[in-house]
Structure formats: C-alpha cells, structure tokens
Amino acid sequence: MSEQVQASVGQILREAREAQGLALENAAIRLHLMQRQIEAMEADDFSSLGQPVFARGFVRNYTRLLGLAPEGLLARMEGAPAEPATVSPLPTPSSRSWLTSPWLLLLLLGALLLGAIPVALYWWLNSDVEESPAPAPVQHSRSAPAPVPVPAAAPAVVPAPAMEVPLAAPPVVLPEAAPAEPAVVPPAVPADAGAPAASVPGVAKGALHLEFGADSWTEIKDASGNMLLRKLNTAGSSVDVSGTPPFNLVIGNAAQAKLTYNGRPIDLKPFVDVTVARFTLEE
C-alpha cells in the first residue's frame, strides 16, 4: 500500500499500460494524440502538454482508456486548481442591498408616475384630434369618381390599326419558314441520345488492398468525403476497399503495413510522421 501511495501519476499510468500489454504507439492512436504526449504524461511532465486544463483532460482520457478511476489521479497532479476559491460572492451583496433600498424604490415609482402622466395626456389629446377630421375626406371621395370614365374612350382608337395586320399577312414569309422547322428537329434527337453514353466512363473507381504486420488504426475517405474504413486492424489481417479517387488515408504503424492501389504497390515511407502515415492517393 505504501508503494502505491508514493508512486507518481505518470508511474501509475505507465505500469497500468505495461500490465495490459499496450504499446505507446497504439495508446497514442486510440487517444488521437502524439506519442510524445503519452510519454510526457508517463514522465509527469504535464507542463509540456500546455495549459493545466488540457493536461488534466489528457490524463482523464488516458486513465479511462486504461480502466482506472480518473478522480484519484487528477487530485494528485501538481498544480491542481482550487476552483472553489475563485467564486467570490463579493459583488452580489452590494447589488442586492442597493436594489432593495427603500429610497430607490420610491425614486423608481416617482419616475414612473412622472413619465406616465405626460404620455396619458398626449394620448388623450391626440385621440380627440383624430376623431374630428375623419368625416371630411368622405365628401371628397364621392366627388372624385366623376372624371374617371373620361379615359375609357381611349380603347376605341386601338381597333383602327388592327385592320393593317391582315395586309402584312399575305407575304410568302410563312410558307418559307415551314420547311425549315422539320429540318432542325431530326439532328436534335441523336444529340440527346449521345449524352448518357459520355457520362458512363466518367465514373472512376479505385481498389485498395492493405496488409497489416502489426496492430494499425486505419481511416480511408473517398473523393466525396465518405468514410470507407475506420477501425483498428489486428496484426496479420488484410482489408480491401474500393471507391472514387482521390482517397485520404491515415495508417498507423505504417512501417508494418503494405498498400497496393489497383494492383500497384505504394511506398508508405515518404508519408510517415513518427509512426503514422497521412497522405492523399490520386489516380
């Protein structure tokens, strides 16, 4: 019991990981962190993880991955914030005592009364003024419709030029346009028929084949952003994926993985960062 009490947070995390046979690389892939961040937590180097809030969040997720209770380890971390002390009720009593003052209530009531009296007088005076001019516009509206029927005689002028239209109709322009129309219709049909044939070869497919020599977290997306594969592949397994290129790939333990695209082997070494390969595979 004394050894567990004296052990640091990082030592407890490292011993729990080693007891489960979990490698640093696999732990980093599962937590979506860099391997150096896992090593920093196991070395009690929490300052390199950024703000204390981020460091505590990383430790909490790591303990849950290892099946440990996070509360005990978070309480033992250095620089654990004493958050209850930051809540200071000092400004609240002053505002409450000021708002509950009887003098303030009297001033507010007086201001409301002074503001309500002018508004009531203004509304009462305007209501009388608006009622008196109402009947006046009614008399003017009755005399106004008299001049309206005068412009009604204007449509009589329109039928006169209508007689000139049949004079322009006899020209031979109409029979000449008739034979031109059927000649244009036939070529339009084959033009539409050829459209679907051009769209068929536009669909490109790509076939990916992956073989894993060690446990590897793999993610593959197609050109439209659809996730084709996202899982932890065990050592000795293989996966076949097909879709529309280009493909976005993330392969963990890339040094132990083999990739072929449409039967052509792809070298993963140029894309490896630490142990993870991230790249886009185009046609």
Rank of each mutant, 00 (worst) to 15 (best):
L167N: 14
Y261Q: 08
G67P: 01
A120D: 04
F54K: 11
V5H: 11
N233W: 06
N26V: 09
V250E: 03
T260A: 11
A146M: 15
L22Y: 02
H209E: 04
S242F: 01
P81L: 12
A207E: 15
D267H: 05
V129G: 07
N262T: 15
R230T: 12
A19Y: 02
V274H: 08
G115A: 14
N248A: 13
V158A: 13
L24T: 05
A255Y: 03
T92G: 12
W217A: 10
G202L: 14
T260Q: 09
V185L: 15
V59Y: 00
P175R: 06
L114G: 13
G110L: 14
S8V: 07
G206P: 01
E211Q: 14
L112C: 06
H32E: 12
F212V: 05
L108P: 01
D273Q: 15
L73T: 09
R64N: 04
S242Q: 13
D128A: 05
V9E: 01
D192A: 12
G206F: 02
A154N: 14
M41N: 00
A111D: 03
A85F: 13
L113M: 09
V184A: 04
I220E: 01
A191P: 00
D222T: 09
P91I: 04
N26S: 13
A144I: 15
A23T: 05
R14N: 04
Q256W: 09
K269M: 13
N126L: 11
S238R: 10
G206D: 08
P91D: 03
P175I: 05
G263L: 14
L24K: 10
A40F: 13
A277D: 03
G243M: 11
G67L: 04
E282G: 06
W103I: 14
V59W: 00
D45S: 06
E211S: 15
S216D: 00
R96D: 13
L125F: 14
A197P: 00
A69F: 00
N26P: 00
P147D: 06
H140N: 06
H209N: 04
V150C: 06
L125H: 07
S127A: 15
T100W: 01
R64M: 08
P265I: 14
A152W: 15
G110C: 09
A183D: 02
V276A: 03
P118C: 02
F58M: 09
D240I: 04
E42T: 02
T280I: 10
L125S: 10
E39N: 15
P133L: 12
Q6C: 14
V241H: 12
A193Q: 06
A207Q: 08
N226Y: 11
P196A: 06
E283K: 10
L106D: 08
A197H: 10
A154H: 06
I38F: 07
L65H: 02
D240Y: 11
D273V: 09
Q4I: 05
A19W: 00
A82P: 01
A180W: 11
T275G: 05
P171K: 04
Q35R: 13
P137V: 06
L232A: 07
V148R: 09
R264N: 04
A180V: 08
L167Y: 08
S238W: 05
E39Y: 01
G115V: 11
F54T: 07
F46V: 13
L249C: 06
V184E: 01
A120L: 15
P81K: 10
L210Y: 08
L22V: 14
I38M: 05
A40L: 07
L232H: 02
R278V: 12
N253T: 13
A214R: 12
S95L: 09
R76A: 15
L33K: 10
S95D: 06
